[in-house]
Amino acid sequence: MLKVTLLASTPDATAVVATAAHRCVSLDDAEHYLLDTDPLKQAAVVRRAVGMGHTSVLEHASFTFDISGVSRSLSHQLVRFRIASFSQLSQRYVTGPFGYVTPPSIENDNGFHELYIDLMERIEQVYQTGIDKGIPAEDARFVLPNATETALIATVNARELHHWFNLRCCTHAQWEIRDMANKILDLVKKREPVLFEIAGPSCVGGTCPEGARGCGLIPK
């Protein structure tokens, strides 16, 4: 089962981002601004910078997540986001137990679900036979499917998270990575509400990149 935990984040992230924005327009001492400026003023500075499109200041805030109970299919999609750091469970050093993720569409089709379970069990048998026969784990893993369960640590800055949410919170995103993105969005909104108050799918900002394929939330 998908689980996302926010392990760590930049302390006083909103203040740090506001200080970065302030530095762009002022010669005042940055440390003094960080420590002594009222939080409401800092929030206003962040909103103004982001509203003007100066989102680079968001890169000064980072967040580290533990993500587990997801498929290798999801992790293949996730690593396409290049401005992030990932540490993933190794199939070379960890050889069991074999877990897998079942898509809801398969789970809801009784006949196909049975075939799916049979296939997963057969794959597990073949994989374990290879391990027992001394086949190196990095070779035995060649039989494992995209459904194989994995876990990873991801560290991402706030600007890139906004990009994640634009693409992966959309109803057109693949279901598993959309569920993950929404869980991450909930976590960071609670931790740093100012930095993520307008975060979400692209339509939150009033535009839909899907065009005719849009879900209908934004009028054509």
Rank of each mutant, 00 (worst) to 15 (best):
M1A: 14
L2V: 08
V4W: 03
V4F: 10
A13D: 09
T14K: 02
A15W: 02
V17N: 02
T19Y: 00
A20M: 08
V25P: 03
A30T: 04
E31R: 14
L34W: 04
D36A: 14
D36N: 14
D38K: 13
A43C: 11
V46L: 07
R48G: 03
G51K: 06
F63I: 03
F65P: 02
D66Q: 10
I67Q: 05
R72K: 13
S75F: 00
Q77G: 05
V79Y: 02
F81G: 08
A84C: 13
F86Q: 05
Q88A: 13
L89V: 12
L89C: 06
S90D: 05
Y93P: 12
G99E: 02
G99Q: 00
V101C: 02
E107T: 07
N108Q: 15
N108Y: 12
N110H: 15
N110A: 15
H113L: 15
E114S: 14
Y116K: 06
L119E: 11
M120K: 06
E121G: 07
Q125L: 08
T129Q: 14
I135G: 09
E138P: 08
R141F: 05
R141W: 01
A147M: 04
T148G: 03
I153N: 06
V156C: 05
V156D: 01
N157C: 11
A158L: 07
E160V: 10
H162S: 03
H162V: 03
R168P: 00
C170M: 07
D179H: 05
D179N: 10
M180D: 01
A181D: 01
N182L: 15
N182K: 12
K183L: 07
K183F: 09
I184A: 06
L187Y: 09
V188S: 04
K189C: 09
L195D: 01
I198M: 11
G200N: 04
P201V: 06
P201K: 07
C203I: 11
C203K: 05
C208W: 00
C208L: 04
E210N: 12
G211V: 02
C215R: 14
I218K: 12
K220V: 06
